[in-house]
Design a protein around this nucleic acid. Structure first.
Lengths: 189, 189
DNA sequence: CCTTTCCTTTGACGAAAGTCACAAAATCAA
DNA sequence: TTGATTTTGTGACTTTCGTCAAAGGAAAGG
């Protein structure tokens, strides 16, 4: 069971059957309907999540009341709601299903136990965080390095699934521009 | 010796004398003159660095040949050159001293030994990465959430040391705008 | 099938950004 | 101190962006 998650782990770090069995035994499943929230602003994130199926977005509201989308998740992605869980503080972000989705999750308390049980998880956790840090750095560099038009072209070239599967009104704020500007950029090219 | 680094560790995770002594014994020191490079684009980052004294910046060159600054480091900061070191690939970034600086560093090979020697380092590494991921997320949200003017005001309010100690031409690209625009924003307010 | 809702596009307009060229100010080094 | 270099500010101009309002299209639900 949960083979996609096991495969995702294997790509990062070889896992023994024993370690996997411990892990699997504490995994829980949650199903989300389209537009349903996994987490709302102000709530404390209770664990780490793996998107088993579907599409999910993460967003917050700016001073003008507009939604700013910060991440889109697809099948086999780890959700990156680190701050709320790690520091046990209310989340600034909303996590919402764009399509009907299924997530696997590990409760925070159980994760702590896991970290104590085997060095494997400590190491895996570190390695996953290395990947997250790298991808977050790439995203911020992307925002400062390219112009709005170049950002769109970059996504078109490198992450076409965003354009195919994410509503453009969501994608716009992820690119750091308005909905209307994105529409005009698309028209120009 | 190296007390600031020990204090920085202590703030994250309690460290035993034994663990600290092991760590201290493999620490190395490097002094940089103003404008000297710690790492140049194309080189592979050989370890993790802690800025003991001075000011350092990280930047890369965009398609137009312009410098894009991605990070500024002050006393007691960890340098975030994760990708090159972790994946053993040439760095996209240049790391350069803005002022005469002193860095402490741990060679990558020795770090691996350290990870094996004590669970402490594995855990510390993970916790440092958690902090890095969170701060990178905040930076990219900052870029997409605020307008150029708001970004400048935010920095003025929350990170005044950047404005006091970093040349504005460097700060501009960090804020995702041109040097001239930053100058005009400053004039307007 | 039709209606409603949601998403995307467009027009008009003003504000702000980028660019190039150059001037002024500050800093550095001889 | 003084000349050279670096950094910051301005002017003129073009391009693009954001905003508000409204119109088309597409998708969803009864």
């Amino acid at each position: 069971m949960y083979l996609p998650l096991k495969n995702t782990f294997e790509k990062i770090l070889k896992i023994t059957d024993e370690d996997w069995n411990i892990f699997e035994s504490i995994l829980e499943t949650k199903k989300l309907k389209k537009k349903e929230y996994l987490l709302k602003q102000g709530q404390i994130c209770r664990g780490i999540y793996f998107l088993s199926e579907g599409t999910i977005r993460s967003f917050h509201i700016n001073n003008d009341g507009k939604e700013i989308n910060t991440a889109f998740y697809f099948q086999n992605d780890f959700l990156r709601e680190i701050e709320s869980m790690t520091n046990n503080i209310p989340s600034q972000k909303n996590i919402q299903a764009i399509e009907n989705s299924t997530v696997l999750y590990i409760d925070k308390a159980k994760l702590v136990t896991l970290y104590k049980k085997s060095e494997f998880y400590q190491k895996l956790g570190r390695m996953i965080l290395e990947k997250l840090t790298i991808s977050e750095q790439k995203y911020s560099s992307f925002l400062t390095t390219y112009s709005p038009k170049e950002r769109y072209l970059y996504i078109l070239e490198n992450r076409p699934e965003l354009i195919e599967r994410i509503p453009l009104q969501y994608l716009a704020s992820y690119l750091g521009i308005s909905r209307e500007s994105l529409s005009r950029i698309r028209k120009r090219i």
